[in-house]
Design a protein around this nucleic acid. Structure first.
Length: 476
RNA sequence: GCCCCCAUCGUCUAGUGGCCUAGGAUAUCGCCCUCUCACGGCGAAGACCGGGGUUCGAGUCCCCGUGGGGGUACCA
């Protein structure tokens, strides 16, 4: 069987981590099985669509590397991929349903429905539509429809079965009593189609094999299953993912913030790290490995190891996963990734010897964007820096050490971390200083603090002219 | 109201009746490495929602309760 998964967001704005987690599972699963990942935009409800919403979604997915094989922008043989332009499919399907009496026209008004609900409310059972229009004689029905009487189309929920059973790859077998399910509307009085109906028609039409989505949809599944059955289409494999909650344990809101993909991107999280972290929400690697590359993920993903309980976002853990991903990068690579995040207005000199700079600071970065807060260490405010350096050199003992190191540095032919480290030690040896007595004053002179990266790396990052300039200030 | 689902350290989780005096990860704390910081290594502390069953034996199975989530829409 060809595996075809899909992600079907509404264009209501930026993607939050819960949505993206669903997209990620679908993508990973498709890749795992060598299948296709389809992107479909559910823009049925025009009022809720946000301008630019679709573009934002495509951008967020692309950034995460969740590329689609078929979608609104690139088309595909099962198109179109926007619900708003698939009316002909829905109409044709409804027509077929009507002809087979699997659906019927309902003339009840909202008021009638409300009155009926009240009447049937015995306080003990589900309140649902009685299905009375289902019994209208065929001739009468034809006449009323022909006369243009307002009506919607409802599904005639099968009465010959007592329950409808859903097999969910994550939640197991779940059954719903048929009499709990009312004859639900598939086409509204105004002609628009309902969500439950459109998804099923599209999933059938696009030959989707696996429907992986949030548990929020589990309760809708029986209705959809009825539709698949009534349309004589094989039901797809269902898999409902547990809900992703915010760090506060509450539902992810539209007010996104730190839970938006775009925000994470702006903060400088690597896409692979985000994908890695997201995959760990509700799923675990068979060997409980947690730092996983994209291909590790593709190889190991599966619905078998997905849990059922809701999960909470934990930014600390995300940062940890991210730091491990940065740790896997080559120096050249990480430097290239960090570069765009440097605040050059604040640190105009940071980009010179940039690779050495990143080398000095990389172990303290969890994200690319963290660079700026560590650049401050190397490039403190120059305002009173000179004065401070002079102050350090004013102590004769310290001065002796600094001068000795300075001499060694001036004659040093190479300017790489190892050679620099050796030169500093040699300078110290010249005046019999070592350990803290040697390193602390030198570091204090260079960056204004005794604590910080290895001296060799600091010197390499500053570069010869800048480093010697700071020595001059301290030793003049 | 009615229906469906969920429930292990703060958080992410392992765990499918005996391997569990519950394992890992993160965060926290301590020690080590080291000139210092960061990284790394080692260690400590920290959980089976409650109550009944079933069983020789239950975190694991069943029932009830509690808490949380979803549905009950001519929302998606």
């Amino acid at each position: 069987m060809t595996v075809r998964t899909r992600f079907a967001p509404s264009p209501t704005g930026r993607l939050h981590l819960g949505n993206v987690r669903a997209a990620a599972f679908n993508w990973l699963l498709a890749k795992h099985h060598g299948g296709s990942f389809v992107l479909r935009i559910e823009d049925t409800d025009a009022d809720r669509n946000v301008a630019g919403g679709e573009e934002a979604i495509l951008e967020d997915l692309s950034w995460l590397g969740l590329d689609w094989d078929e979608g609104p922008d690139i088309g595909g043989e099962y198109g179109p991929y926007r619900q708003s332009v698939r009316d002909n499919h829905y109409l044709a399907t409804i027509q077929g349903l009507l002809e087979r009496d699997a659906a019927y026209a309902c003339f009840c008004t909202t008021e009638q429905l409300a009155a009926e609900a009240e009447e049937y409310d015995d306080g003990r059972t589900a309140q649902r539509y009685s299905g009375k229009c289902r019994n209208i004689e065929i001739d009468e029905r034809f006449e009323r429809v022909s006369a243009g009487e307002a009506h919607c189309i409802r599904i005639a929920v099968p009465e010959d079965i007592q329950s409808i059973n859903i097999k969910d790859e994550i939640f197991g077998s779940i059954s719903f009593a048929t009499n709990e399910i009312e004859d639900f509307v598939v086409q509204r009085t105004d002609g628009r189609f309902t969500y439950n109906f459109a998804v099923v028609v599209d999933d059938i039409g696009m030959e989707i094999s696996h429907v992986i989505r949030g548990v929020g949809h589990l309760s809708n599944t029986p209705k959809q299953a009825i539709l698949f059955d009534v349309l004589s289409a094989p039901r797809p494999v269902f898999g409902h993912l547990p809900t992703v909650l915010g760090a506060d344990g509450k539902k992810l809101s539209k007010r996104l913030g730190a839970t938006a993909v775009a925000e994470l991107r702006a903060q400088g999280f690597p896409p692979d790290a985000v994908l890695n972290y997201l995959s760990l929400l509700g799923w675990s690697h068979p060997e409980e490995k947690e730092v996983l590359t994209r291909s590790d993920l593709i190889g190991a993903i599966g619905l078998e190891r997905v849990g059922k309980s809701d999960t909470q976002l934990d930014e600390e853990k995300l940062r940890w996963v991210s730091s491990r991903h940065l740790g896997m990068e080559e120096l050249q690579e990480i430097a290239d990734h960090v570069r765009p995040f440097v605040d050059t207005g604040m640190f105009p000199e940071a980009l010179t010897n940039f690779q050495a700079t990143v080398d000095a600071l990389r172990t303290r970065l969890s994200t690319y964007g963290d660079i700026n807060e560590h650049l401050e260490v190397l490039y403190p405010d120059e305002g009173d820096a000179e004065e401070k350096r002079q102050g350090i050199g004013s102590d004769p003992e310290v001065r002796k050490v600094l001068t000795a190191v300075q001499k060694r540095l001036i004659i040093l032919p190479a300017w790489d971390p190892e050679a620099l480290d050796q030169a500093v030690r040699a300078g110290g040896k010249d005046v019999e200083a070592r350990g803290a007595a040697l390193f602390h004053p030198v570091r204090k002179l260079l960056i204004g603090s005794e604590k910080g990266p290895d001296l060799g790396k600091i010197l390499a990052a500053l570069g010869r002219p800048e480093a010697l300039r700071r020595f001059d200030q301290g030793c003049s």
